[in-house]
């Protein structure tokens, strides 16, 4: 397992037919591996199964076929110790203060109080939330709330962090800053990161490798190696090589995105009929 932190072996996800809908072949078959300490991003057209891939990789969903191997052992349908997930939606608990939100997971594990305080305070200051420990999530901006969720994941000291479009709801400037912070976090913790995003520039900037997915059923049409230095930040975007990688990603994705739009239109053909 030396070079494979987490891997997919012929993973396939099919959602069974529901009512009048046909079964949906969302993912795979797909096989690939993420290296220990790697920053890996997944980009793809909308509805290509990116989020399904995250669900399967975290153990939230058991795949229809195939296996996910995490640190040498197959996942059994629950989330194993060592994996942390940051969701796209705001997952902070509105009834808890920022501090209690971040401490939530540790308390459930029976970690002793002094250790909880140490880890929570560290995570909060790391994420720039030290001044907001007593605030409730509703008093924070969307970006701050997402930081709370990241801090809550961090305190559990995960070795693999999965992020599902965590900055999807944020404005462009905030996204860039959060990206830099994510890189800092990655360097300091040494964790492996898998990021799902639809923003090509974001994937380009942050990642060591980028998996480019096809339209449904999602598989990788290519895995692009960026070759950026480990201590990169958002100033990278000024380099000509950066533009070259972005162009390459878009070239790979363009036809897939159009195919995905076609799928989308086909599944809503009744609407098209009405409009005609």
């Amino acid at each position: 397992m030396t070079n494979e932190h987490v891997s997919f072996r012929d993973v396939e996800q099919v959602f069974p037919a529901r009512g009048k809908q046909d079964p949906v072949h969302a993912l795979g078959p797909i096989s690939f591996a993420i290296r220990p300490g790697e920053f890996f991003s997944v980009v793809g057209p909308s509805g290509c199964g990116k989020s399904t891939m995250l669900d399967v990789m975290s153990g939230l969903t058991r795949p229809t076929r195939g296996q996910v191997i995490f640190e040498g052992s197959p996942l059994d349908g629950t989330v194993p110790d060592g994996i942390g997930v940051v969701f796209q939606e705001d997952a902070s608990f509105p009834w808890l203060t920022v501090w209690d939100n971040v401490a939530f997971g540790l308390r459930r594990r029976g970690v002793d109080a002094a250790e909880i305080r140490r880890r929570v305070d560290y995570a909060l200051s790391f994420m720039g939330l030290a001044a907001f420990t007593k605030a409730y999530p509703s008093q924070l901006s969307g970006g701050m709330r997402q930081r709370v969720c990241i801090a809550r994941t961090l305190v559990m000291q995960p070795r693999l962090i999965l992020l599902d479009e965590p900055f999807g709801a944020l404005d462009q400037q905030t996204r860039l800053l959060m990206g830099d912070e994510l890189l800092r976090l990655w360097r300091e913790t040494g964790a492996t990161i898998m990021l799902i995003t639809h923003a090509l520039d974001e994937a380009n900037l942050l990642s060591d490798r980028i998996g480019v997915m096809s339209a449904r059923p999602g598989t990788f049409i290519s895995i692009v190696e960026t070759g950026w230095a480990k201590d990169r930040d958002s100033t990278l975007a000024e380099l000509p090589e950066f533009g070259a990688v972005s162009s390459r990603l878009w070239a790979l994705l363009r036809s897939e995105s159009m195919r995905a739009m076609g799928q989308h239109a086909a599944s809503r053909s009744s609407l098209a009929g009405k409009a005609a």
Binding site: S58, L60, V79, V85, F87, E89, A91, F93, G105, R108
Partner: peptide, 18 residues
């Protein structure tokens, strides 16, 4: 109950009671 909170509970491996 927002689905994302239940998924968070699953990631934190809470049992049914918790």
């Amino acid at each position: 109950v927002p689905r994302v909170l239940l998924r968070t509970a699953a990631v934190l491996r809470l049992n049914r009671w918790s």
